[in-house]
Nucleic acid binder design. Structure first.
Lengths: 123, 123
DNA sequence: CTAACATATGAATATATGTTCATATGTTGT
DNA sequence: ACAACATATGAACATATATTCATATGTTAG
């Protein structure tokens, strides 16, 4: 409702884009929830993970995930709408790739937490 | 299903915890989706945002969010189960705080993406 | 232009999830 | 022990969401 002004008490006094203590209004928090919601589905996070290695067409994504073409296409639509992936047409095929490095940063930050909590063993 | 071994092609050859290209098995991806799912709710992200300023008791959280006590408590349970917040009892009250800095990193990474996409104006 | 292929989309269904209400648990002061 | 308060929890309900099926759109080769 209200927009409380909070100065960063932890890392700095200025408000730069990476500062997690930056003043954030309610609408931004809703946007943020929407963004994380997109990451919060196993099919979509698996798509993102697959695209870490580089672009891939829908058919190969579908194959790699063992999911239906329609399901993958629906999820790609959501990823696209969130600005997380970008399509590129080449003939009949659509190649998808991660939109920018923010996607990798969010993914990496989440992964670091999982690892820290010990639920992950690297081989 | 299968566990494909991918070496990082972008930033390094070693596999350290922050590398977004680290080899990640299917189970970890499911854990990751579960983690982001926790961030992907407006009530929970508002709780996290509130706790950025420091610990807070349930009643004050409930007050600040304009949400019911029960709703907040239910969401705190989920945040606790995910290892994102930590409770501390002081008399009748329960004070919650962010569990560790990973929470801030994930939050900050998401916020950076929102800002980059232009959906956020800092005052 | 037509057939074959790749992807996208709409509708329907089944499942997951958040909130509310009622109540239980736990703590303090008397 | 009891009353008052703070928080937690279970059940019920309403809503959101992911998948599937059928079909539409778009592209290429012949």
């Amino acid at each position: 409702m209200e927009n409380v002004k909070n100065e960063c008490k932890n890392c700095c006094t200025c408000v730069h884009e990476n500062c997690p203590h930056a003043n954030v209004d309610e609408n931004t928090l809703y946007d943020l929830a929407e963004l994380f919601k997109v990451f919060g589905d196993s099919t979509r996070i698996r798509i993102i993970s697959a695209l870490m290695d580089g672009e891939m067409c829908v058919y190969h994504l579908s194959e790699r995930l063992g999911a239906g073409q329609s399901a993958v296409s629906h999820q790609l639509r959501i990823l696209r709408a969130a600005g997380l992936v970008r399509p590129r047409r080449e003939g009949k095929e659509m190649y998808y790739s991660l939109d920018d490095d923010h996607v990798k940063e969010i993914y990496g930050a989440g992964l670091a937490h999982i690892i820290h909590k010990g639920g992950y063993v690297n081989e």
